[in-house]
């Protein structure tokens, strides 16, 4: 069998591409994990609508939606705990976290419905880097737990 010229180069390139892909996947590995689901929950990721199961890894800019009589519970990588109630829409605008220094930044928008949150490591170590928003208000958080509710009408 004759080895075609260039096939080695191709193999190497493929290998490199695969490596880069894996690296990219590692970089975008979840910012948080869905732990509990009741009823109907969907995740909008770009143009795709995904149906998560417990263990689903969330990414930055995901929009989590719940149906009527549905809930979802999430643990973020910095141990922030979130849950959303029925007919809610939550966007994970921004999240980064350095496990070594325990610092990072997080911005989450509740577009409608109900959200409960228990703050995590980012609030503990860099509280000014955490924001929760609705269409009418912005929340700064200093080590605590709370509930937000919005009809999403804005004004």
């Amino acid at each position: 069998m004759r080895i075609r010229p260039g096939s080695w180069a191709r193999t190497c390139l493929c290998g490199l591409a695969l490596l880069l892909c894996q690296q990219a996947l590692a970089d975008i590995a979840g910012i948080g994990t869905i732990k509990t689901i009741t009823g109907e929950v969907q995740v909008q990721r770009g143009a795709a609508t995904l149906t998560p199961v417990p263990g689903f890894e969330l990414q930055e800019q995901d929009v989590v939606r719940t149906g009527a009589a549905s809930t979802v519970g999430i643990v973020m990588r910095d141990k922030t705990i979130l849950s959303a109630g029925a007919s809610s829409e939550l966007r994970l605008d921004k999240f980064n976290f350095d496990n070594k220094t325990q610092t990072g930044a997080m911005q989450t928008t509740l577009r409608k419905g109900r959200l409960s949150a228990i703050s995590g490591a980012i609030v503990k170590h860099s509280p000014e880097a955490v924001q929760f928003k609705t269409s009418t208000m912005t929340l700064g958080v200093r080590g605590t737990e709370f509930i937000i509710e919005t009809e999403g009408g804005g004004s």
């Binding site: 269409s135 200093r142 605590t144 937000i148 509710e149 919005t150």
Partner: peptide, 17 residues
């Protein structure tokens, strides 16, 4: 739009601005 502050399991309460 509304926020409710909750006490932690040990009764400690933080702040929300």
């Amino acid at each position: 739009d509304k926020v409710v502050l909750l006490p932690g399991p040990d009764g400690a309460v933080g702040r929300v601005i």
